[in-house]
Design a protein around this nucleic acid. Sequence first.
DNA 1: GTGGATGCAAACGATTTGCAAGCAT
DNA 2: ATGCTTGCAAATCGTTTGCATCCAC
Lengths: 143, 143
Amino acid sequence: MRKAKDIFEKYISDKKLKFTSQRNFILETFLKEEGHISTEELYKKVSQKYPSIGLATVYRTLKLLSECGLAHERQFGDGQTRYEHSYEHVHHDHLICTRCGKIVEFGNADIEKLQNDVARKNKFKIYAHKLELYGLCHECVNK
Amino acid sequence: MRKAKDIFEKYISDKKLKFTSQRNFILETFLKEEGHISTEELYKKVSQKYPSIGLATVYRTLKLLSECGLAHERQFGDGQTRYEHSYEHVHHDHLICTRCGKIVEFGNADIEKLQNDVARKNKFKIYAHKLELYGLCHECVNK
DNA sequence: GTGGATGCAAACGATTTGCAAGCAT
DNA sequence: ATGCTTGCAAATCGTTTGCATCCAC
């Protein structure tokens, strides 16, 4: 698998953009995260080591990372866009407990296969999907 | 199946709220919609026949309709929350073309079954889900 | 009559944008 | 040298809220 940085650099040079130290550092910090991070949270982490960075730059960089497929946008209904990276991650979906907010990740190859069938039937070429199951987790059901 | 208005009225009286003409008219207008409507769009339709109505009331009423299960929130990534009603609708999911914005609805019982299996394994009690497939539709692939 | 509902405008939080200065190419 | 990028602050967008008035109960 190609290194995430290489993917990002290639995307940037293909688009005649520039690879800046800010973009590099935001990418590195983002890749260290394993969960679903909001722009604001990533900004806080980045600015601890790189205090001069601006929030707008984090927004702009996350958008670039989305465009080149290194980041995926998720909306869990709390009003903030969250991002997770797919680099060295297998794809997964989410079970969300609407009472305590717990999020459980799961992967299911059979569901993915059926999704592809649906796409084929409708002549869509799919490059991303989101599946979210909302409900109550074991602990919250019994409250 | 019970009438949507009855469901709404029961929910409202159970919560000791009041059934106003605004709430009634917003519900009626919403039920006529078959697609995914944003609050702003619904507000425009409602205010054509009921010009004194305020946008905030539409927001507040859609929230109530969500709570009682007559409306479902959807986020398609355009920054707006959209709503669709389940009344006399079978559940369906969405194929979204990220180039032209076309949205195709589909239903797939096998996927739903697998979702329930996943939920059971994780001891979740599911009451809602969202599945969105993002890609390019037939026309846009060939552009 | 009373407490919830309304319309309005102001407030809000997340995100975007305009701009002058800075830096990668 | 050119033009994309930056940080900042102001602007914007969708949504929420405070409040005086209104109305369903």
